[in-house]
Structure formats: structure tokens, C-alpha cells
Design a protein around this nucleic acid. Structure first.
Length: 712
RNA sequence: GCCCGGGUGGCGGAACUGGUAGACGCAAGGGACUUAAAAUCCCUCGGAGGCAACUCCAUGUCGGUUCGAUUCCGACCCCGGGCACCA
């Protein structure tokens, strides 16, 4: 295809020489306290005895055996990306070279919110001591509307309730969602079960029942929420289902009716003014936020808190193919990183893969190690890294792929940030966020000085095949090889570029290939003619009308093409090139020697402009024509063509005349024409008179060099 | 469900900051050249009416703002991407 890849920088992320540096970085992060282990949920197929990816769970069932998938909590390693949440969010404003939609998606993903953490006292029972149930809310103004609490099935209160009551335990168990996938949790039927325990409302002292609910996640926030069914739609539906009371406490400003009338069909989720809220009644939502926060803080019942939607990055995968996580577990010393001298931990390749769990856990030579702390027998971690690890820093490694003594060297600092990064829009959040995070981690261990990895970002739209994303994993890819073999690389490039702007998604269809090839044949044809003509010289006299016009249109098209290049709208660059070629091939043959000199010049100059303009798109044919025209260097090394202002100068422009906003005539006006004159010319048009008829002119809008709109 | 995009002729798409809707190309139809085919060139090509000049309708749907809306605002429908273990 004529790509200009620098193969001397080739690297393979499955090579221990590459992934050892991820292991090294991970151990550094462990020492810095940015790595921790906690229990987290995975999809577990009890039949296949294996962990499933979300993609492999279909309607709550295993894609391979079809059996029901369970949720299982296992210990996993996490990176504290939330420590960087504030910075990752704030620096989005500096990414001026990124598409706004990607910045917006990242901002929403990080999801900073300001709220209040509130502690509800849960009195002791026969089976459990008194304790606190903490919740986080962004709507403390609705606090008096709380009628129950909901906790995750794994919450301590749920566990205690389950321990004392087998029937309840089963009911709580049924509250575990069929998949850990967020979309499943959001769209599944909301279910819950009362734990039989109560919490005390911190201000009113009311007894609030505590439910276990399937939509509350233990891994997010406090694993518990306060429910305000009158003002939250999910709580509203849940309360309706389980016959829980609604207590409206917010009404619109100026509202004097019955608050209950606002919540007959749905929750009232707007902000407003507080009612039925004790001493806070009458405050606006904004005032109540501060007043309640202050009140709770003074009584040590709560505190203001900034919360992020972003969760820490779980990097453990219970898979064989991956970078071994460089940790060792010792009964005495706990979890210790593999000493730097022992890196890399190489993935053993002589293994039997039988589908039941990771083979690494069945290779004693792999997992049996001596504790690097006390020397006692210990066990090596058998999980591997999320493969996003590999893609989070490869761009930096390209700067110094031969560096064997360090993860990166000063060359990475020289090259970073990447000037122009190109990737699919499907990576808008995860890959790009992890790469931004990794760049900061590498910065904070002293490897680079930059904060951001990618200066400018171009997100390609997806190529669809039969309506779905074309991807290696789906196997619905097409290869341009066939087009290349039949028409050559330039045709393949031109066709793809011309199909649509790169940011747009595109249903693959190669119907236009012949047209792209036809254009190159015509370009070649004109080239041969000009080569035969043997060069050109700038004529001493001014250009005649037709030649001046042709030159003007060629320079106009170049202006447009340069503008479109700047917008990365390459398809219209090709259009402009086609228009230039069309204009040149329609130029009549010269009648006289004087004409001939003008013709040769306009075409010669225009053709060379066109070659330079198209050289990034169709490098082979343009370079060949360039050299055949007698030039010695490569066309790609030529300075970029700029339009000649003299060629663009116009004396007259076509202006559209509308009557009541509808196009009725076109007139030619001199550039810089005053409104009076434009008006006179417009009114002289027969069709304009016809539409004005005898109606009085109410208004006349004149946009110089564009249009005249006569309102009658 | 939530977040981000998109919807314009038979098709890919164009339309600058609210100012000529359909550029450029594909496909299709008609014609020229040719013994024939290929290649090339010319003409037509959103829908409807009209010998024609021209007129009416039309940018997913409905409504709004404006002299003027594909473009801005509101509601809705449909399609795609992401939703933390596909990467």
C-alpha cells in the first residue's frame, strides 16, 4: 500500500523483552502504593470451571456450554487509577487536538460529582452489633425523602442477615445479577429483598427498612444507597414494586399544590424547593445542599465528598496467554513483588490447555518459588495482566525499542507526545484513558517528562461489514489485496480515501474502485500529453479570458483542497483533484502560438500543483509523472503548493436573488458592489418582478458576494 | 438503561460562520466510435407538473426560532459505538 513504516522500530508485545518492563513498572507501582489486591466479582461458569469475559456471557449463560453463569468473588490486583482521576479529568481541557466527542466521553466516564457521605446508624440485633451504614448522595436536599436503604448482596449487613436466616440467604443470593456487565445490571429487572433490619434516619429519627437490591454494586461507592423514591426514578419503581412509601420533599419553585400530585406517574427528579423537611423547609435545593452538609458535618453524621464514577483498574486475568503478574504470595510475608533481578517472569510455553482454568496453576515449576523475603516456600501469582497493559505504552517504546537496560530512555522524551495518533473511535474511552494513565505513571517513576501521550487525535470511524464492526475478532474483515493485485496500490489508496471522511463509519462496498482507477488513467493521460509538449514557460503577456478563468478555477480548487486537508477531510481533497483534472482536460487545443504558450503554462503549472497535492494520497503515480516531467527529486519532498492570490482575484461574482427566501434569479455583480446597486440589478430581473408583483417590499437582506433576499 | 456519534438521490458522499441542497464519484439509461467486445468520449439522471421558460415538493418524523434551517432549539423514531474481562 505504500505505507512508510519504520520497521527498524518493530516490536512484539508478547516478547519477554517487551513485557518485562510492564512487570518492572508494576513492581515499582506496588512499592509506591499504587497497586492493591481486593476481592472482586467475575463471571464463573461452574460447568467449564472457568472465568468468562463479559462478551462470553450471553443472556446469563456460558457461550460454550450454555449453562447458567454465576458471580464469584476472587482476589484480584488493582491499579489506583482513581488517584489520578482529578488530573485525568482536569487535563482533558488541554487536549485541544482531540475530537470534542472523545473528550466528552472521557469526562463523563470519569464522572466527577460533589455530594455528601452520610452515615446511617443501624441498631444492633440479636445476631449483629450496632453499626454504621454509609451512603453517598449527590442529592442531600432530598434527605428527608429517604424511605429505605438498599445495599449490595455482598454488603456486610446483607451477609449478617443471610448468616442468621437460610431462607433469607437464598433470597439474597438470588439478587446477584446474571453478569457483571453494567448494561445487564442497568436493564435487568430490579429486584430486592428486605433484610429485616432497620437504619435510623440521621435527622428525623425515623426507622428505615434495609433492602438488599440486585442493582447496588459492592465495588462501587459504599455498596449501599439511600433511596428517595419520590425523587429518583429507579427508587420509585423499586418502591412501587415492594409497596414502600413515597415521601415528596421537593417541589418546583412557586408550587402551591399537593406535592403528592407531582409524583403520581413518575418520580419528580428536578431540583426545586424543600417541603416537609423540618428546619430546612423552604430552602432551594442548592441552599439545602450546603445547609444539610454543614449540619451533618457538625453532628459528625456525614461529610462532603467528591466522588468519581471512575473505578480502579482491575488488571488480573485468569488466563494463560498474557504477561505473568510479578507477585509472590508467602504465608509469612504476604504479597511481595518479584525482585528486579528475577525479572522477567517468563510465561512458560510448554503447557496443556484443557479449557478448565488457567494452566499456570497446574505447573508447579512455575508457581512454586521461594519467598524473596524469608526464603520459605511460597506461591507465584498465576494470573496474567489485562492486555490493555501492552497497548498502554507501546507508542513510547517505539522511540527506543532496542533499549535493553530500561523501560524507556531519553529518546522517548524526545519523541513524546505523539504528534498525531490515529485509532478507531471504539477506543475512545478505555484504551485512550489507560494510555493517558500509563503516561502519568511513567512520568511519576521518572521515565518521561510529558503528561499526555497524544497531542492530536484522529478517531477513525469503523468500517462496517453487513452492518457490524469489521474486526479481527469477528473475522469479518476484507483485505485490500485483491484490489491491489488488479489495480495497484494507488487505486486502492485513492478509492479508500475517496469513500468517506475518515471519522465517519462506512459500510464496506468496493463498487467505486473502477472509478478511482479511471481517474488515475486520465491523470496519466494528461501527464503523457504534457510530457510530450516538453515543458512550459511563464508567458510575458497577461492571460486571455479563458486561460485566466481556467487558472483561477485551478487555484480555487487548490485553496479548497488545502483547507480540507487541514480538516482531515481527504475525500473532498480527491474531489478537488478530480475537478482540477476535469477542468484541464476540457481546455481546448491552442489555435495560435500565443495561445499555445498560455495553454502550456496554465496546464503545466496546474498539473504540477495537482501532482504535489495528490502525492500523499497516490504517491507512486504522482512521483513517476513528476520525474517524467523532468524533475529530479521526489515529489513528496517538494514544498507544499500554495495558491497564487493573483490568480484568485475576481472582478465579478454571481449572486443569488431570493424572494421570500426562495431562489428566483442569479445575477452577476461587481466585487464590493454596494447594496443600492445590487438592489437595482436584482429588481431589474424579470422573474423577480414576477414574484414581487405589486406587493410592497418589506425588507431587503443583502449578503455581499452571496445573496439578496427580498421580503414582500 | 446510561454516555457518545449518525440519518441528505438507486449507492458513497458534498454543502465554508444560518445564505444556491445534491459538488465529486459510482451505478443506471441513451448515443458516438468499433465487424464485435474492451477501452474512450458525449448526453440524461431526487420526485411531480410543463414541448419550454419555469413551478411545486423534498435533507429520519413532528414542532419551534429566523428574511432564510441539512446547519440552531425542543420532542420523538431508527442505526452504530462504548459501558470497565473483546481489544
Amino acid at each position: 500500500m505504500g505505507f512508510a513504516y519504520d520497521w527498524t522500530r518493530e516490536l512484539a508485545t508478547c516478547d519477554p523483552a517487551y513485557y518485562r518492563w510492564e512487570q518492572w513498572l508494576f513492581t515499582r507501582l506496588f512499592e509506591k502504593g499504587l497497586v492493591y489486591k481486593k476481592r472482586a466479582m467475575v463471571n464463573w461458569c461452574p460447568n467449564d470451571q472457568t472465568v468468562l469475559a463479559n462478551e462470553q456471557v450471553i443472556d446469563g449463560c456460558c457461550w460454550r456450554c450454555g449453562g447458567a453463569v454465576e458471580q464469584r468473588q476472587i482476589a484480584q490486583w488493582f491499579l489506583k487509577i482513581t488517584d489520578y482521576a482529578e488530573e485525568l479529568l482536569a487535563d482533558l481541557d488541554r487536549l485541544t487536538g482531540w475530537p470534542e466527542q472523545v473528550v466528552t466521553m472521557q469526562r463523563n466516564w470519569i464522572g466527577r460529582s460533589e455530594g455528601v457521605e452520610i452515615a446511617f446508624v443501624v441498631p444492633g440485633s440479636d445476631q449483629a452489633p450496632e453499626q454504621l451504614c454509609r451512603v453517598y448522595t449527590t442529592r442531600p436536599d432530598t434527605l428527608f425523602g429517604v424511605t429505605y436503604l438498599a445495599v449490595a448482596p455482598e454488603h456486610e449487613i446483607a451477609r449478617q442477615a443471610a448468616a442468621s436466616d437460610p431462607a433469607l440467604a437464598a433470597a439474597i443470593d438470588a439478587c446477584r445479577p446474571g453478569s457483571v456487565e453494567q448494561a445487564t445490571i442497568d436493564t435487568m429487572e430490579k429486584r430486592g429483598v428486605a433484610t429485616g433490619r432497620f437504619a435510623i434516619h440521621p435527622l428525623s429519627g425515623a426507622q428505615l427498612p434495609i433492602f438488599v437490591a440486585n442493582f447496588v454494586l459492592i465495588g462501587y461507592g459504599e455498596g449501599a444507597v439511600m433511596a428517595v423514591p419520590a425523587h429518583d426514578q429507579r427508587d420509585y419503581e423499586f418502591a412501587g414494586k415492594y409497596g414502600l412509601p413515597l415521601k415528596p420533599v421537593i417541589v418546583p419553585e412557586g408550587f402551591a399544590g399537593d406535592p403528592g400530585s407531582l409524583i403520581e406517574a413518575a418520580a419528580y427528579t428536578e431540583k426545586g424547593v424543600l417541603v416537609d423537611s423540618g428546619e430546612f423547609t423552604g430552602l432551594t435545593s442548592a441552599e439545602a445542599f450546603d445547609a444539610l452538609a454543614q449540619h451533618l458535618e457538625a453532628r459528625a453524621q456525614g461529610k462532603r465528598r467528591v466522588n468519581f464514577r471512575l473505578r480502579d483498574w482491575g488488571v488480573s486475568r485468569q488466563r494463560y496467554w498474557g504477561t505473568p503478574i510479578p507477585m509472590i504470595h508467602c504465608e509469612q510475608c504476604g504479597d511481595l513483588p518479584v525482585p528486579e533481578a528475577d525479572l522477567p517472569v517468563v510465561l512458560p510455553e510448554a503447557v496443556t490447555v484443557d479449557g478448565a482454568g488457567s494452566p499456570l496453576g497446574r505447573i508447579p515449576e512455575f508457581y512454586s518459588v521461594d519467598c524473596p523475603g524469608c526464603g520459605a516456600a511460597a506461591r507465584r501469582e498465576t494470573d496474567t495482566f489485562d492486555t490493555f497493559f501492552e497497548s498502554s505504552w507501546y507508542f513510547a517504546r517505539f522511540a527506543c525499542p532496542d533499549q535493553t537496560g530500561a523501560m524507556l530512555d531519553e529518546r522517548a522524551n524526545y519523541w513524546l507526545p505523539v504528534d498525531q495518533y490515529v485509532g478507531g473511535i471504539e477506543h475512545a474511552i478505555l484504551h485512550l484513558l489507560y494510555a493517558r494513565f500509563f503516561t502519568r505513571l511513567m512520568r511519576d517513576v521518572g521515565l518521561v517528562d510529558v503528561d499526555e501521550p497524544f497531542e492530536r487525535l484522529l478517531t477513525q470511524g469503523m468500517v462496517l461489514k453487513d452492518g457490524a464492526k469489521m474486526s479481527k475478532s469477528k473475522g469479518n474483515t476484507v483485505d485490500p489485496q485483491e484490489i491491489m493485485e488488479r489495480y495497484g496500490a494507488d487505486t486502492a489508496r485513492l478509492f479508500i480515501i475517496f469513500s468517506s471522511p475518515p471519522e465517519q463509519s462506512l459500510e464496506w462496498n468496493d463498487d467505486g474502485v473502477a472509478g478511482a482507477h479511471r481517474f488515475l488513467r486520465r491523470l496519466w493521460g494528461l501527464g503523457q500529453e504534457l510530457i510530450a509538449a516538453g515543458g512550459y514557460e511563464t508567458p510575458a503577456v497577461e492571460l486571455d479570458g479563458a486561460y485566466a478563468e481556467l487558472r483561477q478555477s485551478l487555484h480555487q480548487q487548490l485553496t479548497q483542497a488545502n483547507y480540507d486537508f487541514g480538516k482531515h477531510q481527504f475525500n473532498t481533497v480527491v474531489s478537488a483533484g478530480m475537478k482540477m483534472l476535469n477542468a484541464m482536460t476540457q481546455c481546448p487545443a491552442a489555435e495560435s502560438a500565443a495561445d499555445r504558450a498560455q495553454r502550456d503554462w496554465v496546464l503545466g503549472e496546474g498539473f504540477e500543483m495537482l501532482l504535489k497535492m495528490l502525492s500523499p494520497i497516490v504517491p507512486h503515480i504522482t512521483d513517476l509523472l513528476w520525474r517524467k516531467l523532468g524533475h529530479t527529486g521526489a515529489v513528496l519532498n517538494e514544498p507544499w503548493p500554495e495558491p497564487d492570490p493573483a490568480a484568485l482575484a475576481r472582478s465579478e461574482v454571481e449572486v443569488v436573488v431570493q424572494v421570500n427566501g426562495k431562489l428566483r434569479a442569479r445575477v452577476a455583480l461587481p466585487v464590493g458592489c454596494a447594496e443600492d446597486e445590487a438592489r437595482a440589478v436584482a429588481l431589474a430581473e424579470q422573474n423577480i418582478q414576477r414574484f414581487i408583483d405589486d406587493k410592497p417590499i418589506r425588507k431587503l437582506v443583502y449578503v455581499p458576494e452571496r445573496l439578496i433576499n427580498i421580503v414582500v
